[in-house]
Design a protein around this nucleic acid. Sequence first.
RNA 1: GGGGGAGUGUCCCGAGUGGCAAAGGGGGCGGACUGUAAAUCCGCUGGCUUACGCCUUCGUAGGUUCGAGUCCUACCUCCCCCA
Length: 417
Amino acid sequence: MRAYKSDFLNILASRGFIHQVSEPDALDALAKSKTITAYIGFDCTAASLHIGSLLPIMMLYWLQQTGHRPIALMGGGTTRVGDPSGKDESRKVLTDEVIAENLKGIGAIFAKFLKFGAGPSDAVMANNADWLNSLNYIDFLRDVGRHFSVNRMLAFDSVKMRLDRQQELSFLEFNYMILQAYDFVELYKREKCVLQMGGSDQWGNIINGIDLGRRMESAQLFALTATLITTSSGAKMGKTAAGAIWLDANLLSPYDFWQFWRNTEDGDVARFLKLFTLLPLDEIGRLAALKGAELNEAKKVLATETTALVHGRAAADQAAETARKTFEEGALAETLPTANVPRSILESGLSVLEAYVLLHLVVSKGEARRQINNGGLKVNDATVTDEKMTLTLKDLTPEGVIKLSLGKKRHVLLKPI
RNA sequence: GGGGGAGUGUCCCGAGUGGCAAAGGGGGCGGACUGUAAAUCCGCUGGCUUACGCCUUCGUAGGUUCGAGUCCUACCUCCCCCA
């Protein structure tokens, strides 16, 4: 790792964010001497962000913490076209209303990490629809298109790989890098934004933006890409059986969010602590030095700190306490995720199969049956052996709930109302 | 434009003689072992049904047949060769 003079690059480098930087010395000097503006582009195809976006958000966070000005760019315009990089399906075209709705949900998440406003280092939320929607094709070709050499575009890895493997590359997709390059220049003109950050797969696109900026505006722009995070076992991050790890408490409870981090693989703990918590590096070094089962302590810290960032300290502490009671004491923690059902349903009896489907622990009664055959379902900590079992008011614990478990880790309380 | 090939279980890859809810992987879920880890081993991996069974699924739409993933026709998409 090289040593930087600016706090911004120093922190990113020492915490393991950086994959590549263009002209690191010039950027370092710039970040040392003045406030710079940098942006990251985000998809707004969903109503909320999931864990995959957490890494770029953290980069914006550190940017602002070190005195600089972050821009979160929503791909409102590019979303209208549909991102071609996802191979098949998902190129659904979203209406402006849906996009606006998604922007609202996503904005709420950014507000937890960034301070927005009009001050010199206050964050800005931008939407590329503001300039892409009104683009005129002929003008765009003449002003922007003439700066792009097809010869050179063909040499970019992203394109070359596709051509080498003789895979289809649509013209739309070929143009995507031009639009993204144009975003960078537009943000330079509007906001004096000189740095674009992104995932390592964005390097080529960002470089194109830098070139375009030099040709059109004689500007010196910079690129910084983050390492692609996978787990030690090579899996993509952020997907579990339950689905995506959302950052929105309505889509994934803080308790389940905490559990996700608690179950981090050993080999990932140190890396994740640096990337996803604000703990000082020496503290992280101490935690990462723990061996064997002691590493579980580090995982708890990771879970609590990351949950605190996303959902607040109180929710994080409660999730930690709920887990402690459930896993370490084997006690019934009343703060486990809870589902309310009308009392009348229990009075007339509710089949276990239906109960599990109702609480979304399984997707069908058939799956519930299979889980029973595999000994995977427990009601009030007793393994279910009879698929015809019925839950009634008699099954309520002294706390007035019924605890339904799937496997050893997933528990939901059923509560009559 | 001409010739050849391909699209399979709605996560992915992939076998498939007219009797098929369809081989095998990967992934995922559950169990055992552990440390709420990894690795390993075992089970499960369309929906409904207590069950006999019923329904939906092999690019799309028709057709042949007692019966179609499999045969025929048209169409869609992709790939290769020739122009």
